[in-house]
Design a protein around this nucleic acid. Structure first.
Lengths: 229, 229
DNA sequence: GTCTATATGACGATAGAC
DNA sequence: GTCTATCGTCATATAGAC
């Protein structure tokens, strides 16, 4: 591993990797400005400071560039939630743990709209992620399922609940908040958003269904009682 | 109004309107095949059987064409739900009424993915609907609010519920189902979809929060009890 | 109303010199 | 590895003849 002098081959490979990362950074910028489907190799090359043909030394096609961005985004959100789930492990009651995790997830999605659109919608007509890239996205769902299993083992989710149903309902619920917020208030964040503000209420509903039986029934939030903070 | 003989000006205007409708039909086809952002005027012209410049006799720009499609879609879903809401007016209990309406709405969205994406997401970078077109989309929300008010007057929604909060939660909930279904199972319909199957469960949660106080608490659906039919 | 012709430019991708 | 040069295709939009 440790070499007295860095070998030229290593330096070359490291510099190459740095260039790849720079291309991905800039591709993300371009997509943020021109839309996910509006990625242009010429525009990327111009900002990198090279000519368009040179990009083909790093990515064999535009699709490959999309795929690399997809994989990067999947890895990033996976890492973010891998960190978040253990942090809410001992939070009680269930609603508090769910709200914390949902806010982390929502915050990441709103802060990374390009990744979110590429990962969770289908904005690019011809593009399908490769199996390798898609597996990272699947790992996120698996991670959430494991988290739910932990919650059930900890007694926060009722023991007779179907985890797959709970997971499905959870995914739909968070997807609803995020899609509405991204489409109707893309410049608001998780604290100020009109739709992220629905999270506490929706999570109360969710917890009433999947939480332990001895939970006090919260019923409806009445007029004017909807506060995030 | 009634003329013994149709005036040439009328015939001309009618034919012109028919051409406009045909262009919109074909634009919808092209978007379905190439993605909403992949609309190409040349492709539309080719299918209509005219040359691209001739399109400019009907729409002054590509944006105007998008706007016309947007307005058409908004009008269509508004009409669909204007018909649906009165039909579920006397359905009881609340969950049955909500489920019927949600299934109508979801079915329309899944059957009209191009309209849905254009109306509810932001897939076209430079495009913003005109005020006139957007008002039709707002009218849909207003219509749903009126429906909720009717439900409250009928005693199906608890009298102390905040209708705006209920509306927001309802929109988020249905948006979650639709966005997940469109992104992850675009070829499934409302009856076979993996995410539309979550509607009964989610609606139970919703009804428990906003329904009348004397409703029996349904609690969680247990393992294997999740049936749509 | 539709056409031809054209302006003007972008796009993804490849060949081959250096 | 990066370049120049170029291919071939497509795009939106306008001018002006018929």
């Amino acid at each position: 591993m440790a070499a007295a002098l860095p070998e030229p081959a290593d330096r070359r490979q490291r510099r190459r990797q740095e260039t790849i990362e720079e291309i991905l950074d800039i591709a993300l910028d371009v997509m943020a400005e021109h839309g996910v489907a509006g990625l242009s190799l010429g525009e990327v090359a111009r900002r990198v400071g090279i000519r368009p043909p040179s990009l083909y030394g790093y990515f064999p096609s535009k699709q490959a560039l999309y795929d690399a961005v997809f994989a990067r985004g999947a890895g990033a959100i996976l890492e973010a939630m891998s960190t978040s789930y253990p942090q809410v492990r001992d939070v009680q009651p269930l609603t508090a743990a769910l709200l914390l995790a949902a806010r982390r997830f929502t915050a990441w999605c709103l802060a990374n709209p390009v990744y979110s659109q590429l990962l969770f919608w289908r904005p690019v007509p011809g593009f399908t992620p490769s199996d390798a890239s898609y597996s990272a996205a699947v790992a996120l769902v698996d991670l959430t399922r494991t988290w739910f299993a932990d919650l059930r083992d900890a007694g926060l989710i009722r023991p007779d609940a179907d985890l797959d149903l709970a997971l499905r309902d959870w995914v739909v619920l968070t997807a609803g908040v995020i899609s509405q917020q991204m489409a109707n208030g893309p410049d608001e964040d998780v604290d100020t958003g009109r739709f992220t503000a629905a999270l506490p209420n929706l999570i109360d509903m969710f917890a009433h269904t999947y939480g332990p039986a001895d939970r006090p029934s919260p019923r409806s939030r009445r007029k004017g009682t909807d506060r995030v903070h």
